[in-house]
Design a protein around this nucleic acid. Sequence first.
DNA 1: TTGGCAGAGATTGTATCCAATCTTTGCTAT
DNA 2: ATAGCAAAGATTGGATACAATCTCTGCCAA
Lengths: 238, 238
Amino acid sequence: MTITDQKPAHNDRAPEDRAQIIREHFRNAIIERRLAPGTKLSESEVGGLFDVSRTVVRSALQMLALEGLVRSERNRGAFVATPSPEEARQIFAARRLVEPGMAAAACDRVDPADIAALKRHLRGEASLMTERGPSARRAEIRASGEFHLLLASVAGNDILYRFLEELTARSSLVIALYGRSGASSCGHDEHESIVVALEAGNAQRAAKLMLQHIDHIEADLDLRLTEGLPLSEALHLP
Amino acid sequence: MTITDQKPAHNDRAPEDRAQIIREHFRNAIIERRLAPGTKLSESEVGGLFDVSRTVVRSALQMLALEGLVRSERNRGAFVATPSPEEARQIFAARRLVEPGMAAAACDRVDPADIAALKRHLRGEASLMTERGPSARRAEIRASGEFHLLLASVAGNDILYRFLEELTARSSLVIALYGRSGASSCGHDEHESIVVALEAGNAQRAAKLMLQHIDHIEADLDLRLTEGLPLSEALHLP
DNA sequence: TTGGCAGAGATTGTATCCAATCTTTGCTAT
DNA sequence: ATAGCAAAGATTGGATACAATCTCTGCCAA
């Protein structure tokens, strides 16, 4: 897998902030696992692909580094992040801390239009699960994370939304590295039951289901592998 | 108040990442309210003060913008952020969601050395409260936020620590704008009682006290003032 | 054969230069 | 006198050029 998989942005109607556009392209590529952890992101190469100078590429890479999606080493370059098992644990600990309360908050503010949007999303997830092929798989991974973001937007807190954007994206990296079953589709009906709780206005139940859901995602990980072997991280390099 | 209050970094033993150094200087200046919300941060001027090119200043400002401490307007420049009342509410909502659980987590992982560090911090806060002068006030504001960060480091989750760094810094801006009593010292004994709960290993009580503490900080704010008057934000400019 | 060293090539870090945009100032016409 | 407009100045956005650092390759010696 190389960064050449990345489609260049055609800037015909986007005169504003090209760095942001590049950032989003990489974000999507990382979430959908078209870019493997550890992939080198050369400034010149990226600049060539998007037809911009290194200046704007550096800006995009800096944003991605602050989000934890990219690891940037001085005088060495930028690489798609490879979260350690410890980092993975912290990511899910943060999600366990934030998301149940957020689901409860969403429950208090949800309106019929939100419910409709959530159900529409569930139908999309379901139809993706029936499709075959790697493209559908990618879309499924992506949709699974977006459910959590949709919930965050219902809760109506931009700051938490941004935080969860970071956490879900990094979770995708973690699942790519340590996921056992490969597909993270296991949780679809859990999404569904959370929406049911939301529709019923049962905040406590929504929070509890969300906590269980996160636990299930984390339970599918195998974080033992490189445990206590700091040098083994390097062995992941192709 | 101008950005000239900022002391330049002498880079004699810091050959690495000057942008990071500049970022931290601004972070501290904003937290300690030496830089007022809305202050213009001109790239040339900052570059002159730190004796670096605009390139590295831009990098620092971009980091600060992503943290929410600086608002960056295209072709206009960067300004110290002026959080809206709604933004302030979201910041404290996020803190209410995160910090009680974090206090509980800290309770489970705390060791005697942590307790000692926390008590040392409390003594520092107490002694600052007795001192007079704006310098002591600044240090007090800063120390008050650092208590929460200290707790986050006890909880041992780097990701939450970074998130809370952002939230406490932005809270400082909010208090500068909407704080009623000016001094945020009101909460010192609350810090103390949280440490007591921690020492007793009572996680539930620590969480409850933390929630109350955040509520008290927020209760000192007056968020009505500019409510519903979008244009009044501009009137804050000197 | 293996270890180390040196130099070439490649890549990042920073400064500077030019273009685009905004702001201000001063003039003109109503 | 005031509103509108235009040109000059200032500031940011982006590209390029140069410096610093790293990596890789090949040679030499043990």
